[in-house]
């Protein structure tokens, strides 16, 4: 395996109608890392993910994935290259079964070459996320936590090398959250690199090997979790004094 970073973003720039949503963002993500991406609402986190997965095209800058320039790729190409993501608002194929949903990922982005093989891969991933009882249910009938699991299974079936999780834990209660954390750990244990976009500091600090902070479209800090949350700029922009202390203890724990 090469030593080069899996993802290298340099000078990324994107404006929407005069608003600079992402400004000169540069960073690298190494293989096997779990990188937490935090920042206030509207900081440009989702736009950044959209840029990396080809949903929107950057105005400037370059994106290298595994050494290849993927700056102008389309989403389906990103998926085929092993850049998978989940959505803040889950995006299933509503009238298809859970099995078909996941099989689509395996067939079109993964290594499966036939629908049969895709369904075999899909069944494995459905078992991995614990959705077997619902394999033949239409996706639209699932509860919210199960829809999030479906998103995981679909992304995993795509055989990703980098998985971007965009607020996968929003709206979950604490028991569901523990399950989700466990799932993310098990995914990371498979050697999949993860970018974790999160508001819940408990999750970010519990999982990340490194944290990046986005504020007004700018990357204001990146580093080890406890250094980042101690940074006065991060405290001012995002965490607030009171929380910084509490998270400091969390990071130490």
């Amino acid at each position: 395996m090469s030593k080069a970073p899996l993802l290298r973003v340099s000078g990324l720039e994107k404006s929407f109608g005069g608003v600079r949503a992402v400004r000169q963002v540069s960073f690298e993500v190494g293989r096997g890392e779990i990188v937490g991406l935090i920042g206030p609402n509207g900081a440009g986190k989702t736009t950044l993910v959209n840029l990396i997965t080809g949903v929107v095209r950057p105005d400037g800058g370059r994106i290298l994935f595994d050494g290849a320039d993927v700056t102008t790729q389309r989403p389906f190409q990103a998926a085929r290259r092993g850049l998978a993501r989940t959505f803040q608002i889950v995006q299933p194929f509503p009238q298809m079964t859970v099995l078909e949903n996941v099989a689509a990922g395996a067939l079109f982005a993964g290594k499966a070459t036939s629908r049969r093989e895709a369904e075999r891969v899909a069944a494995e991933q459905i078992a991995f996320v614990g959705l077997q009882p619902f394999a033949d249910a239409p996706a639209v009938s699932l509860t919210l936590p199960n829809r999030k699991r479906l998103e995981f299974a679909k992304s995993l079936a795509m055989g990703p090398r980098l998985l971007m999780l965009d607020e996968v834990n929003a709206g979950l209660n604490s028991a569901e959250l523990d399950n989700a954390l466990d799932l993310i750990r098990r995914i990371a244990a498979r050697g999949i690199t993860i970018i974790l976009i999160e508001h819940l500091m408990k999750v970010v600090l519990g999982l990340s090997t490194r944290i990046m902070v986005l504020h007004h479209g700018e990357l204001i800090r990146a580093g080890a979790p406890r250094d980042v949350i101690a940074d006065p700029r991060v405290v001012e922009a995002y965490l607030g004094q009171k929380f910084a202390k509490r998270y400091g203890r969390l990071a130490d724990a």
């Binding site: 998926a79 085929r80 995006q91 194929f93 067939l107 795509m158």
Partner: peptide, 21 residues
Amino acid sequence: KLGFALRCIQQNEDAADMVGV
């Protein structure tokens, strides 16, 4: 395979794009 892809598009075109169609 084409029909499966087309059905994905019918269900949710953006999601189809995201899974590699």
